[in-house]
Design a protein around this nucleic acid. Structure first.
Lengths: 111, 111
DNA sequence: CTGTATCCGTCTAGATACTG
DNA sequence: CAGTATCTAGACGGATACAG
């Protein structure tokens, strides 16, 4: 296996990490994890300060990255449910450890 | 303790995570961890595609967040050494688990 | 309800030149 | 050597209006 060295731009680790390195991805994943299946508007309600545009964009990216699953039902009004993929679920303990660390150290970091 | 709910913009966890949610922070921390004390130029060399501006900016932020320690020596030519703080060291296992996950799943994520 | 389209201001990030 | 200053292009992100 080559190009695993973090120094290089095409390092796969760098190209994975960059996908969560935005304002809303971890937060969105965390909410879907907590509530199981969630509808578009439920997620929006759970993150009061996200705009529709960023919510759509974030969900689309997470789906493209195979971290969440999108199920659309052809009803009127339409219903769309988002849930974690198996891979998404496997990421959550790692995110949880990040959250735990943040909780333990935020006073020192932001001091 | 209040305002620990991830939903709110002033949640401390969100305000900690946002500090690593950029292109260079984790990469810089990882390099300093691997090599112990590093000079400005050494870090730059270890990350060939970072610009001077982004390196300066990233190092400054990491120092402000108390994750790294900056030691400047009044020599000519000047010498500045960066190393992980104790808190920075405590973050590295978490980052390592992120890297491990990325390594295990990058094919599926980027597929 | 679940989005998309558009506009627009701000922030990010790189290139280059320059300083102590 | 270790940065800073300036400029610029593009990405990010919010508000609003609109569509299926």
């Amino acid at each position: 296996m080559q190009e695993l060295d973090l120094r290089y731009p095409n390092c796969p680790v760098r190209n994975v990490l960059i996908r969560f390195s935005d304002k809303w991805s971890l937060l969105t994943l965390r909410n879907i994890e907590r509530n199981g299946k969630m509808r578009y508007k439920e997620i929006g309600n759970a993150i009061p300060d996200i705009s529709q545009k960023m919510l759509s964009s974030t969900l689309k990216h997470l789906e493209e990255d195979h971290l969440i699953v999108r199920e659309a039902y052809a009803e009127i009004p339409p219903r769309v449910e988002y849930s974690l993929s198996e891979m998404g679920k496997s990421l959550m303990p790692v995110i949880q450890s990040l959250i735990d660390w943040s909780l333990a150290h935020f006073e020192e970091v932001t001091r």
